[in-house]
């Protein structure tokens, strides 16, 4: 039971880090890094409380498949918004000479 207590303390400490991250004055582009403590917490839960390694080969394969397909979902899904260039709409049928790029609202 002692290992459960250590894992709980680690989760509480990481939760405190996640909470503290709310007050870090990071620029908007870097703020997704504040997800890091949560990702470590997820790993502790999967390896500690859910004991994915103890379950055998099949649960491990399902867990890895879930992570793999999640990466595919998030990777392919965000490839479009993160790389798309937006051009102004053609107003009144006149052709627009050079397509000036519009970056997303910042």
């Amino acid at each position: 039971m002692r290992h459960l207590l250590w894992m709980w303390l680690a989760l509480v400490a990481l939760g405190a880090c996640a909470f503290g991250g709310a007050f870090l004055p990071l620029p908007a582009g870097l703020r997704p890094l504040l997800m890091l403590p949560s990702l470590v917490m997820v790993a502790i839960l999967a390896l500690g409380f859910m004991e994915v390694r103890r379950g055998g080969a099949l649960p491990g394969a399902f867990a890895l498949a879930a992570i793999f397909w999640l990466f595919v979902l998030l990777g392919l899904g965000s490839a479009d918004p993160l790389t798309r260039r937006v051009y102004p709409a053609d107003q009144g049928g006149a052709s627009v000479p050079g397509p000036p790029e519009i970056s997303p609202q910042r």
């Binding site: 709310a22 007050f23 703020r31 504040l34 997800m35 949560s38």
Partner: peptide
């Protein structure tokens, strides 16, 4: 938790 409460706060 971070998606809702943390990332956008400051």
């Amino acid at each position: 938790y971070p998606l809702i409460y943390v990332v956008g706060r400051l």
